[in-house]
């Protein structure tokens, strides 16, 4: 379930963001702590340093130099993770309730079909999830594939998911949702193209009550 053992492009991009930030943070931390140590091991070392160096240099310039590129990098990678809204992408409607997940495959040939607590996707293909809840707030999270997004009653949130290779990925509810919050786990099964069609074909038809989520975005 590690966010660092990635299996999809979204998780991979965030993991590299993490490694970059970890290195940066370690350098900054070491630098600041060394300064601090120097003030004790070499007392008076800063007596000749103009006050402005500390305040302008340390207080303003230093964070500006660090944060500006970080924000730009983050904005760029966030933009790529946002759902494209491309109509060609397969759509699955996700409904969370205490304490189960229901997945409705809207575009399945032969009418919408449904599965519970297991989401079937095709490996290498992106899928767009339209997520809502019928009771309290939950959160949909598959650590190895992508970041999480809340399932909020009355709203629909959107997450784009893609697994690079076939396999089973564990998912869980990340927003505290009551006594069985822990039990609200699910699996994402990524199949090869052929196998995927067979699995979808074998799913029961969706009953109307769990049809397309309603609510404001």
């Amino acid at each position: 379930m590690s966010t660092l053992d990635t299996a999809g492009p979204a998780a991979a991009s965030i993991a590299s963001l993490w490694w970059v930030m970890l290195i940066g943070a370690t350098l900054i931390f070491t630098f600041v702590m060394s300064l601090l140590a120097l003030t004790f091991f070499r007392p008076g070392i800063g007596r000749g340093t103009p006050v402005a160096w500390w305040l302008v240099g340390g207080g303003l310039a230093f964070p500006a130099v660090v944060l500006t590129p970080l924000l730009i990098y983050a904005l760029w990678s966030g933009e790529r993770l946002f759902p494209t809204g491309d109509p060609a992408v397969a759509q699955v409607d996700v409904v969370a309730r205490q304490w189960e997940w229901t997945f409705t495959y809207r575009n399945a040939t032969g009418g919408a079909v449904r599965s519970s607590n297991t989401l079937h996707i095709q490996a290498g293909q992106p899928v767009q999830l339209n997520i809502t809840s019928t009771d309290v707030i939950h959160a949909f999270w598959v650590p190895r594939l992508a970041g999480k997004i809340d399932a909020i009653p009355g709203h629909v949130t959107v997450l784009q998911l893609k697994a690079d290779t076939p396999g089973v990925y564990r998912g869980l509810c990340a927003e505290f949702c009551g006594v069985a919050h822990l039990e609200m786990q699910f699996a994402v099964e990524a199949h090869e193209a052929g196998a995927f069609d067979a699995v979808i074909g074998g799913l029961p038809p969706a009953t109307p009550d769990v049809n397309a989520p309603r609510g404001r975005p």
Binding site: V51, W54, G59
Partner: peptide, 13 residues
């Protein structure tokens, strides 16, 4: 950061 470096600067000098 301004406060942090004001403190470190105070220690240093």
């Amino acid at each position: 950061a301004v406060q942090f470096f004001a403190w470190i600067g105070t220690l240093a000098s």
